[in-house]
Design a binder for these strands. Structure first.
Lengths: 187, 187
DNA sequence: CTATTATCGGAACGATGACTCCACTTACAC
DNA sequence: GTGTAAGTGGAGTCATCGTTCCGATAATAG
């Protein structure tokens, strides 16, 4: 524990975790838009309790989504160490697509600017640069381009219905974007 | 005039057009999200007056955006009649991208389902089928795929800053998606 | 000019949702 | 056990927005 902060009371600790669990679930299912009162109800606490632990809804969102994005970034670093830069880049993109299909909060997470987005941007930078140097990705795209592309792609992926038909459609749409990112053959 | 509807009073007619002009401007600048009161203020009328002419905000939006989409559809039909199906398809896509960059209401218009979306879907269907038969577009994509792709693309294009840097970024992003839609060389 | 009635403006309503306040409860130190 | 301060919950506040209501206004017919 840091010396500046006294330890949390046992029940407070428990509630904090109930809130985080509920928020994780609710944000994943409905994105940033879910009402905070709903999260509180799902956690079995009052809204006031949520605010005792997080100063704002946005802070709660960042706390929830920060963990998920950290995982993604670890994944990106791992892939970056692998042999084939092209496979690393596109593999990571595929992971993001799959993630976005399952959890509705990821697109909103990318849109919020803050430490989260900065970290993701950097992780993408490494992957992209290496893939471009290896000739696997067209050289003109930049990291901001990728962010724009992903924001849009993941935003609309949110609305593809679940089930096998939806999954097939998702795969096609992701494939289109990926192919567009590859080095184009000279016309 | 239809026999069932008596003629509008002169001032009412004038106000109706003021509202439409203001709505066109406001929706284009801010998308569907702009408050109706703001539109009314911009038109120089009260909110009540807006509701005298349109039963709901959504109806007003459809009235405004219907005209724009009609233009797009005419364009699509024209292009469909041209010689080169591939050029027709990608030219239309480019037009939509340019349109979306300038007017923020187009992405919202695609998202609203109704007659507008149906018409656009059909126009796209013709263009897409011909381009696929000509081998200019990969054969696996469907019209719903295109809609998803465009929704996302236009949605994030909304947030690209204006100015030459933004325009260049827009062009790159659109180029990526277009290239992804082309017939891929056999691996 | 006057009566009629469509139209107008904007205050008011109802819903929603983030956030605050405070009387009550309860964990923990002693 | 008891005192006390941390913690709680949920009613209440404030702001936003779509929508409705109605007394005032003014266009039009006769």
């Amino acid at each position: 524990m840091s010396p500046g902060e006294r330890a949390l009371r046992a029940d407070a600790q428990r509630n904090r975790e109930k809130v985080l669990r509920a928020a994780r679930e609710a944000f994943a299912a409905g994105g940033y838009g879910v009402p905070l009162d709903e999260i509180a109800a799902l956690a079995g606490v009052g809204p006031g309790t949520v605010y005792r632990h997080f100063p704002s809804k946005e802070a709660l969102f960042e706390a929830v989504v920060g963990a998920r994005v950290s995982d993604l970034i670890d994944d990106a670093r791992e892939r970056a160490a692998a042999a084939d830069p092209g496979a690393a880049f596109f593999g990571f993109l595929g992971r993001m697509g799959a993630e976005a299909a399952a959890k509705r909060d990821l697109p909103d997470a990318i849109s919020v600017d803050g430490a989260v987005q900065e970290a993701l941007r950097e992780a993408f930078g490494v992957l992209l640069r290496r893939a471009q140097q290896a000739g696997a990705v067209r050289p003109d795209v930049t990291v901001p381009d990728l962010i724009v592309l992903l924001k849009g792609l993941m935003g609309s992926l949110k609305e593809v219905p679940p089930g096998p038909a939806g999954a097939a459609q998702r795969d096609r749409v992701v494939a289109v974007v990926m192919d567009g990112l590859r080095q184009p053959a000279a016309p």
